[in-house]
Amino acid sequence: MRKRGLAAALAACAALSACVQTRQYADVQFTPPSGDYKLLVLRPDVTVGSIATGGMVQPRADWTEQARASIVQALRAQQASRGGNVTVIEHRNQLSGVSEQELADVERLNFAVDQSIVLHKYLGDGLPTKRGRGLDWTLGADAVRLGQKTGYDYALFLHAEDQVASGGRIALGILGLAGCFIGFCAPNVGGQQQLDYASLVDLKTGEVVWFNVVAAGSQVPGIKFGDLRTPAGAAQMVDRLLGRMKPGRAVQQASKER
């Protein structure tokens, strides 16, 4: 009886402490791109590290390279299935017709706008002026100019970071779990953490039309949910992040009324 209770408690604990959350916002007029569109992916920001026993994150160059390649591959396959034509640039000097400085300006502007979106849409600090208006942010004329100069329809900004629990971290968690049997129960020392977000900018209007965050984390080391290093894990992440783009509210309502 006691044992079963303990097992149930453990299961609940594990269920509560490992989860994948995703939440997307779209411009009210947003329709997910489909058909023949040109998508520019600007310097995907990927980092994969290993969580040491004591909790410090050690960046891993080899894993990061693997993850980046897998993510780009998955992204290309996914967009191609919708009819998209994807260009991925890794460095600011790879985009012809646009200077490094211009691209840097757009990237920095986007970073600031993304931070604002995260603050006001995800961290609970809602703006009364933007209530009920979907995703109402824009990069303005700079992004329109980028579109005019390069001929792309959309720009996608992508960030993915994954921290994988090392052997030592898992052992520490197991030690904590073992302690449960004598009354010091601490398996939840903190395990894999993944944070991915993406923003889609319409280069015809300059508006940020769609934004999504995927946060996955486990308090118990050793529990995994999609490993970015593997092609399958990267494809799962790309699907979670970009696979279920929903149209904006106005568009949804219009299609319901029809």
């Binding site: 909790g55 410090m56 030690l175 073992a178 302690g179 009354g183 010091f184």
Partner: peptide, 24 residues
């Protein structure tokens, strides 16, 4: 970086063992 990693590793193991040992 290595110094921090070593010390935080040692501390985590020590703290965990102290907790379990103390509970026992």
């Amino acid at each position: 970086w290595r110094d921090q990693k070593r010390k935080s590793d040692l501390f985590s193991i020590g703290a965990m063992l102290a907790g379990i040992g103390g509970a026992g």
